[in-house]
Amino acid sequence: MGRIRARDTKPELAVRSQCHSMGLRFRLHRKDLPGSPDLVFPKHRLCLFVHGCFWHRHHGCQYAYTPKSRLEFWLPKLARNTERDKENEAALVALGWRVMVVWECETRNKQALQNKLSGIIERLD
Rank of each mutant, 00 (worst) to 15 (best):
V50D: 02
M100G: 07
M100Q: 15
F49W: 04
L71R: 12
V15L: 02
L124T: 08
G2P: 00
L39A: 05
K77Y: 06
Y65I: 07
G23I: 02
L48F: 04
S118E: 13
H44V: 11
T107L: 08
F73C: 10
C47K: 00
L33K: 00
S17V: 01
E12L: 10
G23P: 06
P67G: 11
H59R: 15
P37M: 12
F26I: 12
G96K: 02
R5H: 09
E106S: 09
L48Y: 04
N88Y: 09
L92F: 06
Y65N: 10
F54K: 10
L46M: 04
W74P: 01
R108L: 14
F26D: 08
W97A: 01
Q62R: 15
L92N: 02
Q114F: 12
R5F: 00
E83G: 07
E122D: 14
D32T: 06
F54I: 11
E106D: 11
D85K: 04
P42Y: 08
G23Q: 01
H59E: 15
F41C: 13
L92D: 01
C53Q: 02
Y65F: 15
K10I: 14
L117W: 07
H44F: 15
P67H: 06
C47D: 00
V101R: 12
D125C: 13
A94E: 13
G96S: 02
M22H: 03
T9I: 03
C19V: 12
G96D: 01
K31Y: 00
C19L: 15
R30N: 02
G23V: 04
L39V: 15
D32E: 10
A112W: 01
R27H: 09
S69L: 04
Q18K: 15
K31N: 06
I4W: 00
R7C: 12
R5C: 03
N115E: 15
A64T: 05
E89F: 03
V102Q: 09
V99P: 00
R123C: 11
M22L: 14
E12T: 11
G35H: 06
T66R: 13
R25V: 02
F54A: 11
E104I: 07
W103A: 05
Q62W: 12
H56N: 05
W103K: 06
D125R: 15
W97E: 04
K10G: 02
R7D: 13
I121T: 11
E104R: 05
H58M: 07
